[in-house]
């Protein structure tokens, strides 16, 4: 690493909103003497400490693991969800990715399905409800056969893993001009549809998840691939095509049987 690093000064424009019903506005802050090796979130921590010292309320934003896997963090930085880096989350943005004197516009995810709770913190419970609608295999603990009983071709397991890598951060929604959740839902639908374990409920799963996605108020897909470009796990829009196939298949195949019963659910 470089020895003597030049410190940077930046101007921040941050979305401040007291609560869900507050209209909110952009507020300007100065970030001074920023080390290029700092992460963006560490820089915001410093700004927050300064605000605290001045007796002002710090900027609320979310983070947890700070290594790009938990999916908690999420800021739109200069119009790009998770900032300027490819295949990275907000917590993986470093100040060296900007230049001295830059203006940073920092905003929350914008979607009807993700209401703002405070400042840059949004409520992503819609994603949980979509999973609750069908993003699982209905297998109770203790029912499993041996792990090697069903061989799965390596490339298929790999493809399922590509889809399963989704961290549920919501950047796809934030990036889409329609605030569409297609990439998130497609990743889960594809992950399970690609595996023999997910085969049994394949038809019903995609229906339930798509209906829930619509009920949550996300927009439709216009095939611009902005979600794929923003996704920190580089999940491909080919999975959206796969979900389109899966859903079409379910439209033609789905039969609701009213006669079934039993099971503890």
């Amino acid at each position: 690493m470089a020895g003597a690093t030049k410190l940077m000064n930046l101007t921040l424009h941050v979305w401040r909103q007291k609560g869900p019903s507050d209209p909110g506005r952009m507020v300007e802050y100065k970030a001074t003497n920023v080390s290029p090796d700092m992460s963006l979130l560490e820089m915001l921590d410093v700004v927050n400490d300064e605000l605290t010292e001045k007796g002002e309320e710090p900027i609320a934003f979310e983070f947890d693991c700070r290594e790009g896997i938990c999916g908690t963090c999420g800021l739109v930085i200069n119009g790009r969800p998770h900032g300027p880096n490819k295949a990275a989350t907000t917590c993986q943005v470093y100040m060296r990715d900007f230049t001295d004197g830059d203006h940073l516009y920092i905003e929350p995810w914008r979607a009807a399905g993700f209401p703002v709770l405070k400042d840059c913190v949004v409520d992503r419970a819609a994603f949980d409800r979509i999973i609750q609608a069908g993003g699982f295999v209905s297998v109770n603990t203790g029912n499993a056969v041996d792990g090697n009983a069903i061989p799965i071709p390596k490339h298929q397991a790999n493809l399922a893993m590509d889809a399963a890598a989704c961290i549920g951060c919501g950047a796809c929604v934030a990036a889409c001009k329609n605030a569409s959740a297609m990439l998130f839902v497609a990743a889960k639908v594809s992950h399970l549809a690609l595996l023999p374990q997910g085969e049994v409920e394949r038809t019903e799963r995609v229906r339930q998840m798509v209906y829930q996605m619509d009920a949550e108020g996300f927009g439709a897909c216009t095939n611009q691939a902005e979600c794929e470009a923003a996704c920190p796990k580089e999940i491909s829009i080919d999975f959206i095509a796969k979900m389109n196939r899966e859903f079409m298949r379910s439209c033609t195949l789905s039969q609701k049987s009213r006669g079934d019963s039993g099971g503890t659910g």
Binding site: H13, G79, R80, A111, G217, G219, E226
Partner: peptide
């Protein structure tokens, strides 16, 4: 669809930017 899509993002971004569209 376009009405729905507009409603799905009731508040836009200060800085609008696209990468792939």
């Amino acid at each position: 669809l376009s009405r729905r899509n507009r409603q799905a993002r009731p508040i836009g971004y200060q800085v609008e930017r696209t990468l792939r569209a």
